[in-house]
């Protein structure tokens, strides 16, 4: 197991190198003097020169890159030119919001997806099975931003069950979390159903039944436990995707998440913010995937020996 974890950690090195290189090269590719881009076009010449010195824009590229990484590791992503605030403070504030939203979403998605998947598999081709698979198809086909608007229209405007705007309380997060989690619920439901159907056909399930175990014990104790292994991977992956995909939900519901911070950064040419957001979201996603793989290996010993 330790060897697997070490191997998996080693694979992280080139990816993190690439991720830092990509966000570093943002300032190099965007037309214009990097020092002016970071300082802002209306900054005075002394300040621009100070930025140039501090970031080493007068140095060769590899020195600039190393400085960029050294600063990033220390949590220094520069100053936002719009907010006049350290980027790291903005990022942490906004990112913790996105993580909360994604966490609630994955909980909702897991609950709906697992129940729908297990019931569908145990009653294959029943009305429930067909209905939940049609629901899953709708879930993966619906644009998140449209679903968000519809939820807002029905549950905030007409039924008045939830507030239409604002943030900071759980009730502000329910509708956005449903919108963000719908597609994941669909994916989890499909995956659980397929995995359950495969497990139910295995010999050990037939043996369990032949031994006279009650059907509920067979399904929930023996089948579900084994069927869950591939589904765990989906949880991790979907949670990771939410961190990036939350940007649409955040925009629809006007929520202060990291995705919206990044999009605003693009519009306002606040490059320090964009760089920081790219780096933070990608690194977190990579780490979430690492943890998912390790969890998968813990549950399924076969993986470790491949």
């Amino acid at each position: 197991m330790i060897r697997y974890v070490v191997k998996r950690l080693m694979m992280l090195v080139p990816v993190l190198f690439g991720v830092t290189l990509v966000s570093f090269s943002l300032l190099q590719i965007v037309p214009g003097d990097p020092a002016v881009l970071l300082a802002g076009e209306d900054a005075n010449p002394e300040f621009i020169e100070a930025v140039r010195k501090e970031y080493g824009f007068d140095q060769p590229l590899h020195v600039q890159y190393l400085r960029f990484v050294a600063r990033a590791v220390q949590g220094d992503f520069g100053i936002s030119i719009r907010n006049r605030e350290p980027v790291i403070r903005l990022l942490l504030q906004r990112f913790s919001f996105t993580v909360q939203l994604s966490f609630l979403s994955i909980l909702i998605a897991a609950a709906i997806g697992l129940v729908a998947g297990v019931v569908s598999a145990t009653r294959q081709y029943s009305l429930f099975d067909h209905a939940s698979m049609v629901g899953a198809l709708l879930g993966i086909s619906m644009p998140i931003f449209w679903l968000g608007l519809l939820l807002m229209l029905v549950f905030s405007v007409h039924l008045r069950w939830f507030p239409a705007g604002g943030s900071g309380e759980l009730r502000h997060l329910i509708l956005p979390a449903i919108a963000l989690g719908a597609a994941s619920a669909a994916v989890i439901a499909r995956m659980t159903r397929a995995s359950m159907l495969e497990v139910i056909r295995q010999d050990y399930i037939r043996t369990a039944r032949a031994n006279g175990l009650r059907e509920t014990v067979v399904i929930y104790k023996h089948a579900l436990k084994n069927a869950m292994i591939p589904v765990i991977t989906v949880f991790g992956l979907e949670f990771g995707y939410m961190l990036g995909g939350a940007v649409l939900t955040e925009t629809v519901f006007s929520l202060p998440g990291v995705g919206r911070l990044m999009v605003e950064g693009i519009f306002q040419r606040d490059y320090a913010v964009v760089q920081g957001a790219m780096l933070l979201v990608a690194t977190t996603f990579v780490l979430v995937n690492l943890l998912t793989d390790i969890a998968y290996a813990l549950f399924d010993p076969k993986i470790r020996y491949e």
Partner: peptide, 25 residues
């Protein structure tokens, strides 16, 4: 494959947004 891993390190639509950040809308 490592290059593909790097692209995949940006989750879903976030990758497209990052590319737009570089190229412009």
């Amino acid at each position: 494959m490592r290059a593909m891993d790097i692209l995949l390190a940006f989750p879903g639509i976030f990758l497209a947004i990052s590319i737009i950040a570089v190229l412009g809308p």
